[in-house]
Design a binder for these strands. Sequence first.
DNA 1: AAAAAAGTAGGAATGATTATCACTTTCATT
DNA 2: AATGAAAGTGATAATCATTCCTACTTTTTT
Lengths: 121, 121
Amino acid sequence: MSRQKEVILGVLRAQRFHPTADEILLRARQRMPALALGTVYRNLKALCDEKKVRRIPMEDAPDRYDGFVEPHDHLVCTVCGKVYDVPPLQSKEALEAKLATRVDGYELKVYFTCPKCQAKN
Amino acid sequence: MSRQKEVILGVLRAQRFHPTADEILLRARQRMPALALGTVYRNLKALCDEKKVRRIPMEDAPDRYDGFVEPHDHLVCTVCGKVYDVPPLQSKEALEAKLATRVDGYELKVYFTCPKCQAKN
DNA sequence: AAAAAAGTAGGAATGATTATCACTTTCATT
DNA sequence: AATGAAAGTGATAATCATTCCTACTTTTTT
């Protein structure tokens, strides 16, 4: 594992958040100023392949990345875009039973308006 | 509703499938050769706002559009990308109960390998 | 029919992501 | 320690779905 990859993984594991590739670059550059955005993307993809990081594909915004890979789903604020973790809301087994097929996985995003954004109205 | 918009909606309602904007353009041009891709996107967005069409955001491919808007979820083949309809696997109410919050909606995609792609191995 | 509003075609622009490539770094082997 | 292969990097260019822009056309209103 290269130093760059370590730093990127370090950023993602430093706290429970869901940054974009750009935000990861910003933070990583505090420890490694020459780091390039392409390297961030390349290593994020590798880390996802190794199951050390999880990508959260966003519908109308840059994708987010998650350094915590135990099973959980995401609650997304439709106003500010912030992503919250929630316990798994589905199981592969339940889906396989309902659908009567083998299932490879699922992506569930629940949309809501977060308390902060609700308060602003 | 402009003639273009009608044609685009007609394409989506002609059969149960999940075409991309490009595929919609191709089909719509059989009836309206001068139709422009920008017009397709513009009207798809409008139709989605009017809840006459549903967008299916794809993670690593162009988005799909669905002319059938009664509640249902999607089963996506990880190999060929084909999208199948399935009955709703979640309900807003169940999610609200589990999460103890108001919920605006959800996006659930279940990934599998479709029979055709399985057969190819 | 004129004026205003809405919609369109076509092409340029945008922006996230990926590819490319010359240049390091790593590291096992002599 | 030198070497050579393999892997990784930084910088930049390319890609490609989608959106934006503008002059033009169609529709609606008065």
